[in-house]
Amino acid sequence: MDDGTGGRGPASGDRLKHSSKPWNDAATVAQSLATSMASAKTELAAGNNGVAKGTEGLASTAVLKEVLTSWDKRLESARAECQSLAPALRAASGAQGESDAGVRGKVDGIRTPGAHGKEG
């Protein structure tokens, strides 16, 4: 018998589920990556201290400096992106939960013929 839901079961907000855990987990990972990138920048700089003095006169010194600068910029860009992503993911979690609650309230108010054994 067709219950008016296209075979998907009764029209009910009970099937609308939202979990903030994946969003919050992703935010935690993004923050962790931002911290790791900051540490990597520090280690990169420390590992290259004094290299210019030890390689004076070598053509590779300028190339090494370019590579160091390039990696420093990349790490900073990745760190900044992760840093800004963490709060955005947490905000998305909250917004999704609020949206789900609003939709659930509207869906619960819909009665279709045959839903829950009664006519709406």
Rank of each mutant, 00 (worst) to 15 (best):
A38N: 13
A46P: 03
L16W: 02
N49Q: 14
P22W: 02
L33V: 11
A45G: 00
L33C: 15
W23A: 00
S39N: 14
D25Y: 05
N49A: 14
K21V: 07
R8V: 07
T28C: 11
H18F: 05
A34F: 07
S12K: 04
S20H: 03
K17R: 04
D14Y: 09
A38I: 13
S20P: 09
L16F: 12
S19I: 01
N49K: 15
D14N: 12
A27D: 02
A26M: 12
A11V: 15
A46K: 08
H18L: 00
R8M: 11
P22I: 01
P10H: 14
A30M: 03
N48K: 08
R15C: 11
N24M: 12
S39M: 12
T35D: 15
L44M: 03
T35S: 13
N48M: 14
A11N: 06
N24T: 08
A30E: 01
M37T: 08
A27H: 01
A46I: 02
S36M: 09
L33S: 06
A40C: 07
L33H: 12
S36Q: 10
G47K: 04
T42G: 03
V29Y: 07
W23E: 00
A34N: 09
M37D: 09
R15L: 10
M37Q: 05
T28R: 15
N24G: 01
N48Y: 12
V29M: 15
K17L: 08
T35M: 14
N49L: 10
P22E: 02
V29I: 15
G13I: 07
S20C: 02
W23V: 02
D25S: 05
D14H: 05
K17H: 10
A40S: 08
S19K: 01
W23D: 01
A27I: 05
A34M: 13
S32Q: 09
L33Q: 13
P22N: 00
K41Y: 10
P22H: 00
R15A: 08
S20N: 06
A40I: 03
S20T: 04
A11S: 06
S39L: 14
Q31G: 13
A40V: 02
W23Q: 01
S12Q: 12
A45Q: 07
K41F: 14
R8E: 03
D25M: 03
N24Y: 00
